[in-house]
Design a binder for these strands. Structure first.
Lengths: 190, 190
DNA sequence: CAGGAACGCTAGCGGTGCTAGAGTGCAGTC
DNA sequence: GACTGCACTCTAGCACCGCTAGCGTTCCTG
């Protein structure tokens, strides 16, 4: 029994190792640098080992994305709860979201851009994911008397997402980012 | 002289053929199906021919994207100019933008998601691209007394872009699309 | 009609994600 | 304590990718 559990533990540790290596490699050199060969070398095992843990490269990316959601949720929560008033809270949450996307573009992509087979807008979505969206919702809630909080949050989130992805891919001038962000906030905190 | 021009004309035709084939293949089967081998087969030439016209696959995608901008500009213009009043015009333009993104997802991606080395938010941007953005701007113009039309248009555009990309990648429930779009419009036509 | 350049082809390079099957070492059994 | 069998990891290789060197043909030019 003890041997069995030790093996399972070691397996779990190696799985963490894979996810961490993939994440670090993606963040430092982009997802195009994360190849199965490179990843295998990084964890000091051969390629097929990856496939005993994950169905394929996409599944590894999905696992990294889930980690990302947990991080994002934590940062949004910190921003929201440390703000002095609700209006300020929404602004801070928006800024925190933007900072996350700017500082970890590869991680952000795995969460929101890449096609990854994770359940999203359903109850089966990973808890971390629901938590992150929940933080946005709670930041929006105090500022609207609208009865459709969910839709409003989704639309606000889309605005943030659009701003960041378009800017990062060179479609929007970087200099005006703050102005656009402020404008978005003003349109959603009435 | 005549032979020279005939050759140039034939070359130009073949270049159009490549772009068209790439576009059709992408729209019908997605960009991942557009490989240089497949594309070569489609145009009935060998692979290296592609490289005598374009620097690489990215350049072909960029050419397709430019075509897409022309199409989008035309559709936005039609929506804008046939509307009865400015408020309606913005709604129609938003709907036309959404329809474009929904019906030609691969084309849309080459224009707004893929990293493609085209100049965007500068005067050197391809005319079709500036025209498309211009249509958005003209739709927004009559509805705001704001002095910063450019920033406002960019932010509205980002909202649209965010809604569509998040929905298409499964991050937003499709059923609520109309409601989100209406909400976005209401927030930008005050 | 001969010479030469322009052009498109075949073949191949180094990479990708992924997998079959061989080989090794450890666990449990007598 | 030796043996057997299984779990596990590795090597090697598949089919594909974007891209290119260099050969062979074709067609224009003088």
């Amino acid at each position: 029994m003890s041997i069995q559990t030790r093996r399972e533990r070691e397996r779990a540790e190696r799985e963490r190792l894979i996810i961490t290596a993939a994440r670090e490699l993606a963040e430092s050199e982009g997802w195009e640098a994360v190849t199965t060969r490179r990843l295998a070398e990084e964890i000091e095992y051969s390629q097929p080992v990856l496939y005993s843990h994950f169905k394929g490269k996409d599944a590894i990316m999905a696992a990294v994305a889930v980690e990302g959601f947990a991080d994002l949720a934590a940062e949004l929560r910190a921003a929201r709860t440390s703000a002095s008033d609700p209006r300020r809270a929404l602004a801070d949450v928006g800024a925190a979201y933007a900072a996350f996307a700017e500082q970890r573009p590869a991680l952000y992509d795995s969460m929101f851009t890449h096609i990854v087979d994770l359940p999203f807008a359903t109850p089966e979505a990973p808890p971390a994911l629901q938590e992150a969206f929940g933080e946005l919702r709670e930041a929006v809630r105090p500022l609207v008397r609208d009865d459709n909080l969910e839709t409003l949050t989704e639309t606000f989130w889309s605005g943030l997402h659009g701003l960041l992805t378009l800017m990062r891919n060179g479609r929007l001038r970087r200099e005006d980012h703050e102005r656009r962000l402020a404008l978005l906030l003003s349109r959603f905190s009435s």
